[in-house]
Design a protein around this nucleic acid. Structure first.
Length: 909
DNA sequence: GCAAGGTC
């Protein structure tokens, strides 16, 4: 029997499609074969309706197997999936060395290669294992350009291991579907086509453009500005065709706020006195108790709005005030009553969910997406990444609704809807990807936890609202004349709340009801006054507004919008303020203003859509892939060179906001070359800067630095500093020069003296090292000479710390080694009063691992946390040192070498 | 260390 391999874009889809095709086969076969207008002869298929599933070798993708017919023959079907893109584009390794490659080379010279997108998933191997020996392949990837591109990634992996076709028989098929419904999937199976190479090529072009342009600009501006300003708190200044315009939106709003000049204006406000009587009508019963209370209040005054709204000249306002003030009565000129409707929402898609999550639930897009994904994988909601706001025609709306009928939060509403009949959902947009986001089963807050619950509650309420009725309300208004001036008063009364019952935050605000009156009626004026007000600036952009702008300009996709927003936060270009408003930082502002100054297209949202237009030509087969790519790269290469030549313009802006390196930081350690003080710059990346030599020395991050007793490195004369990760962590001395320019072959950048193999320096590993770490492979336990009186021995690779010999007044690493485990012996002196040693001893030399006296004085921990090893009973203590302290044969010894000179010579070869 | 796009 021949085998048909089928591949979907994600595991969940493989399962749904396999279920449909394996069970619905007989009906589907009938349906499919009844189509007479097939564009091409399509392989017919059927299956007896049972399917078996197993996990693939990567543990993530499943394989669903069943038998059926295909191309008129009995076959074995294997349905599986990838996890998004199989491959990713990157430069060849040597072009990823920032110091060695001129970013300009990234536009053309630097070759790119496709790498596995997620090596852990082992996707190519997995596809080959499953594809080996298959005869046909049907590609069920999402029906968009990215999906088309993944088709070819799958084919590249699988075709070489599949059986060879006989006599030009077609073996590669593409299924095109627009929803995951029985009809659609069966139709797709009945009308298999071919993957579209042009669409795939347009994605290849997009990938290459994004990579080359993004990396070139990012590397250039990072290298240019990094280390130039002391208080520029960013080690990466990135640029990207999506993230930069996203930042641009935030800065644009900031500029509007900055340039805003408040203007004073004046408003007339009138109050009339009216005996209260409301229209009688059936809607009254629906009004809230608030209204009924108002109704009992017989006399009240009515606030009128001025038809001129406002004037910007005080004297003119005063004139109008004077004229109206003379009048004692307001005359009704017209009345109107209109029934209006507030529409029920469209079915929920991803961006709308993210907007509401941000604006109403205070949940950032990235977080909201993660929460939604968890709800999805746990089966509470449908697939959360979709652009579609239209339920498929045969979508079962009542099923999910019934599941909610006993939910304590909305049982009443749902039961009434089911009893009285649901409303037809509004016609939304069908993007052909996934159905809108809906609840899949009932859940409670206790079950989900408060965060996930809030999102689930919103999704469910939104779903119920889409099958509810519009909210109907009555808008009435009365036009008045007071002297020469006209005033109006409006009121809204809810006729039927419709969907706002389940989405109360959308309710028509309760407004006072208006009195019944007719044209010509008069009301006594109780007050006319003039109010002075000021126009106010807009506020910073909310995340929700930003999402709307990005969607409108085609910046990013439903899945990547949260990533871009997260990026500009993490890169320190904007900060999220209260109300989830995005306030650009100085860095963000300077960058955008810099782009505006040099080449505004770099930050305008139009650039992405212009490129996309070109890419679409490739997809439609109207333009040549190579030509478009070459042409676009050429344009950006020119832009890049112009940007490089004009960078001083951006630098001028930087100078205003940031202070030069030489003017920042506090003097800390002395430079070994000029013997002047260097300055310690705390802003990330923290570093030392010698303004005389104009050299910068990076320091280890995430810790504090102080001077180390003015001790100097014997190799370069730089003053040592002491790095510490905190009182419960570890610390070690460090030479700023050696750490940046490793003196020995076996040392790497960033290392401290505790890893230095200098054979005689008193701060080195050679002198302070004790023995192999008890936990990690390559680490050595090193005495921390500054840690007394709470002495510590810490691993120079991992975070193992041993606390030992508390209150000893001196601890030294001896030249002798333990005969049992080869660890260096420690020489410990205690004060007479505090000595824990037996008898009246104050001094003891021994091995920390093997000496029974020392074993009682050593406590193993992890830096800043308690170590699990220490939880055991007393019995394990004995064996610990003996077994683990021993250095394996062949490993470099941390002991003091016997022949210092020969060892020294070896290092300097 | 960099982009944006899939998805987990």
């Amino acid at each position: 029997m021949k085998t048909v391999l089928m591949v979907a874009e994600k595991p969940s889809l493989a399962q749904s499609i396999a279920k449909i095709l394996s069970r619905g086969s007989i009906r589907a076969w009938g349906l499919c074969s009844s189509h007479s207008s097939l564009e091409q002869p399509s392989p017919r298929f059927s299956s007896p309706g049972s399917m078996s599933s197993h996990k693939g070798l990567n543990g993530t993708c499943s394989v669903h197997e069943y038998t059926g017919t295909f191309a008129g023959q009995p076959v074995h079907f294997k349905m599986t999936s990838v996890c998004g893109h199989v491959m990713t584009l990157d430069f060849l390794g040597k072009y990823n060395k920032w110091d060695k490659v001129d970013p300009a080379e990234l536009f053309s010279q630097a070759p790119t290669e496709k790498k596995e997108a997620n090596p852990k998933l082992n996707m190519v191997k997995f596809l080959q294992v499953e594809g080996r020996g298959c005869d046909y392949i049907v590609l069920w990837l999402d029906c968009d350009k990215e999906g088309e591109n993944i088709c070819f990634e799958v084919l590249d992996a699988v075709l070489p291991v599949m059986n060879q076709a006989h006599g030009g028989e077609k073996t590669v098929f593409r299924a095109r579907f627009s929803s995951i419904t029985d009809t659609d999937i069966c139709n797709a199976m009945a009308r298999l086509g071919e993957p579209d190479h042009n669409e795939a090529l347009s994605v290849d072009a997009r990938q290459e453009l994004d990579l080359r342009i993004g990396c070139a600009f990012t590397r250039f501006q990072t290298k240019y500005f990094q280390g130039k300003y002391g208080n520029l708190d960013s080690s990466l200044i990135s640029f990207g065709p999506c993230q930069t315009p996203t930042l641009g939106f935030c800065v644009e709003r900031h500029d509007k706020i900055q340039s805003f000049k408040p203007e004073t204006y004046w408003v007339l406000q009138a109050k009339v006195h009216c005996p209260f009587s409301v229209h009688a009508g059936s809607f009254q019963v629906l009004l809230s108790s608030f209204f009924l209370q108002v109704n009992t209040d017989k006399d009240r005054s009515l606030l009128l709005d001025w038809d001129r709204v406002r004037v910007f000249d005080r004297e003119i306002a005063q004139m109008f005030l004077n004229m109206t003030k003379l009048e004692k009565e307001a005359q009704v000129e017209a009345t109107s009553r209109k029934e209006k409707a507030k529409q029920r929402p469209l079915a929920l898609n991803t961006v709308e969910m993210l907007r509401v999550a941000s604006s109403s639930l205070g949940m950032g897009p990235q977080h909201a997406m993660q929460t939604a994904e968890r709800l999805y994988t746990q089966g509470y909601i449908s697939y959360p990444r979709t652009e579609t706001t239209h339920y498929p025609e045969n979508f079962d709306l009542k099923g999910p609704l019934r599941q909610q009928a006993n939910h304590p939060a909305w049982a009443d509403t749902v039961k009434r809807l089911l009893a009285e009949g649901i409303n037809r959902p509004r016609k939304g947009h069908d993007a052909g990807d996934h159905p809108p986001i809906t609840p899949m089963r009932s859940a409670t807050e206790a079950e989900l936890g408060s965060e996930a619950w809030r999102l689930y509650e919103y999704i469910t309420r939104h779903f119920i609202a889409t099958v509810s009725y519009d909210c109907k309300y009555l808008q009435s208004s009365i036009s008045f004349r007071i002297g020469p001036e006209h005033f109006t008063c409006t009121g809204k009364t809810v006729i039927s709340p419709g969907f706002t019952e389940i989405m109360p935050w959308q309710s028509v605000p309760l407004e006072e009801n208006l009195p019944t009156c007719q044209k010509g009626d008069t009301f006594p004026v109780s007050e006319v006054k003039m109010l002075e007000k000021q126009t106010s600036p807009p506020d910073y952009l909310t995340e929700a507004e930003l999402i709307t702008l990005m969607e409108k300009h085609g910046i990013g996709t439903d899945a990547s919008i949260p990533v871009h927003i997260n990026n500009i936060c993490q890169r320190n270009y904007v900060v999220v303020e209260s109300g989830r408003r995005l306030k650009p930082t100085n860095l963000g502002i300077v960058l955008v203003h810099g782009y505006y100054k040099i080449d505004a297209e770099l930050v305008l949202p139009t650039i992405r859509s212009a490129v996309e237009k070109q890419l679409n030509l490739i997809a439609q087969g109207k333009a040549d892939y190579r030509q478009v790519l070459g042409h676009t790269l050429d344009i950006f290469k020119r832009k890049f060179h112009y940007f490089v030549d004009s960078i001083a313009g951006m630098d001028e802006l930087m100078e205003v906001s940031f202070s030069p390196l030489a003017a920042t930081g506090k003097p800390l350690s002395r430079c070994g070359k000029c013997h002047r003080f260097m300055k310690y710059i705390q802003a990330k990346p923290s570093r030392l800067h010698c303004s005389h030599c104009d050299e910068t020395y990076t320091l280890p991050q995430n810790g504090t630095i102080k001077l180390y007793k003015e001790l100097r490195c014997p190799l370069d004369d730089f003053e040592l500093v002491l790095w510490s990760s905190g009182s419960r962590g570890k610390s070690y001395p460090l030479c700023p020069y050696c750490s940046n320019h490793p003196p020995f072959r076996d040392m790497k950048k960033g290392m401290g003296c505790n890893e230095c193999t200098h054979p005689t320096c008193q701060h080195s590993l050679s002198m302070l090292g004790i023995g192999q770490c008890v936990e990690c492979e390559n680490g050595v336990l090193v005495l921390d000479p500054t840690s007394g009186p709470k002495w510590k021995v810490a691993c120079n690779k991992c975070n193992v710390v041993a606390h030992c010999f508390e209150n000893a007044h001196r601890v030294r690493v001896s030249a002798d080694t333990c005969s049992a485990c080869e660890a260096a012996l420690l020489d410990v002196d205690f004060n007479k009063a505090k000595s824990p040693l037996p008898g009246d001893e104050t001094q003891h030399t021994g091995c920390v691992f093997c000496d029974p006296i020392f074993q009682e004085l050593v406590e193993l921990k992890h830096a800043a946390s308690c170590h699990p090893m220490h939880r055991g009973g007393p019995g394990r203590r004995q064996g610990r040192g003996r077994a683990r302290g021993r250095r394996p044969a062949g490993k470099p010894s941390a002991r003091r070498p016997k022949d210092k000179m020969s060892a020294l010579a070896a290092y300097f070869v």
